[in-house]
Simulated scan of single mutants.
Amino acid sequence: MNADARPPFDPELEPALAMFRGPTPITLTRDAIPTLREAMVVPSLAQQLPDLDLESHDVTIPGYRVDDIRVTVIRRRGSTGSGLGIYNVHGGGMIFGTPLSAIGRVAGWIEQHDAVVVSVEYRLAPEFPDPYPVEDTYAGLVWTANNAHQLGIDPSRLLIVGGSAGGGLAAGAVLLARDRGGPALAGQLLISPMLDDRDQTLSTRQIDGVGVWDRPSNVVGWTALLGDRKSTDDVSIYSAPGRATDLSGLPPTYIDCGSAEVFRDEDIAFAERIWAAGGQAELHVWAGGFHGFDTVPNPRVSKAARAARDTWVNRVLNR
C-alpha cells in the first residue's frame, strides 16, 4: 500500500479548504492556541442567521465542582417551544469555541420544529483540563433536563447534538448519563465526533499535513485536554468515548463524518460497537468530505449530509 495514499477531497469542496485554513497554519501547535482563539471571532446569532428571527439569553448554572458556567438558550422570537429540545455542544478541539460556534448546524430544527436550543459553554483545555469539559457538558445536560418544562421542552423529546470535540463531549455526557442514572434522551447526533485520544487509526495517518484538523493538530488538542495521560491507560471512557468497549444502553445514535478526515475510523468503530451491543446507530461516511465540510453551503455532498440529518431527526421524533 502507498504510505501516502488517502481518499481524495470532493472536487466541489476543494475551493473551501483555503477558507477553513484561514490565516493560521494547517497544523496547530500548542503555542498557537491563544492566537487561534483571538483570530476566531464567532459572529452573533443575527449575523450567522439573518433570515431567522431568533432570540437568546444566557443563564448561569453550576458546572463541574459547582463552579459557574454559562448556557445560552435560543428559540424563535416569542416562542414558548413545541416540546423539542436540542442540547448543543460546540466543537473546537477541546481548546476553542463558544456556544454560538457553528450554531447553524442546529438552527434548521428551530425553524422546522420550533425547537428550543440550549448550548453549553464548557470550560476549555489546557486551562481547564479533563474532566472539566465533559463534566461541564454533563452538568448542562442535567440542568436542561431538570428545567425542561420551564424551557418549553418535553423531557422525552430531548436530543443531544455535538460536532467534532463537541461530538466527543456529547458522547461522553451520554455515557455519564447512562452510568449515573442521568437524563434519558430521545437520541444523540454526533457530527464528525472526536472520540479517541490514542492516535492509532489509518485515517489519522492519512490526514497528516493536509485537509482540516490534521493528525498533529488532533494530538495537540488531546494533549491539551489530557496532558501526560494521553494514550495511557489512565483515561476514562467519558473523556475519550472511543475507548468504551460496552456501548449498550445508549439512545438511538446518528454518526456522520467525511472519508478524508482524521476521525473517520474512530467514528466507524464507535458505530460498530453500538451495533455489537444490540443498539441502534445510523452511520454516514461522506465521500470526499474533510473535517467540517458540512458547513460549506453549496457543494452537493454538504447538502446531502445536512438532509440526511434532518431525515434522521424527523424519524426519531415521530417514532
Rank of each mutant, 00 (worst) to 15 (best):
D246R: 05
L226Y: 05
P129L: 04
P183E: 10
V161R: 04
V212R: 01
G227L: 07
D265C: 09
S156N: 12
A287R: 11
L28F: 02
E127H: 11
W222Q: 07
R75G: 06
A32H: 02
V219T: 01
L141K: 03
L28Y: 02
L49V: 12
Q188M: 11
A107Y: 08
Q206P: 02
H90T: 13
P155S: 14
I191W: 04
G140K: 08
V117Q: 12
S239Y: 05
G242S: 12
A186R: 12
I160Q: 11
I69P: 06
P183G: 02
G104I: 14
V117I: 13
A102D: 15
Q188W: 07
G81L: 07
D114L: 08
C257A: 09
V73G: 12
D154P: 13
F20Y: 10
A269S: 13
D114T: 05
T311E: 15
N218Y: 00
L49F: 10
F290C: 04
S203G: 01
L17W: 00
L169W: 07
P216D: 00
R264G: 03
A18M: 05
G85I: 06
S44P: 13
G97I: 15
G83F: 10
Q47C: 03
V235D: 07
P129I: 06
A260W: 02
R243L: 14
M194K: 02
I153G: 04
A287E: 13
Q188L: 07
A177V: 04
G249E: 14
E282Q: 11
S217F: 03
G242H: 10
L13G: 05
A165I: 14
T137E: 06
V174M: 15
P193H: 01
L100F: 10
V118D: 15
Y122P: 14
L225K: 03
G63W: 10
L17G: 00
L195A: 00
S79M: 10
R30K: 11
V71T: 08
L13A: 03
F9E: 11
L84V: 14
A18Q: 08
I26E: 01
G187Y: 08
P8K: 07
D199C: 00
A271K: 09
D233G: 14
I160G: 07
P7H: 09
Q48V: 11
M94K: 03
T144E: 01
G167S: 09
G249Y: 07
A165K: 12
A224C: 08
R315A: 14
P34Y: 05
L176E: 10
E12S: 07
N318Y: 03
P43M: 03
L52V: 12
V296I: 12
M40W: 03
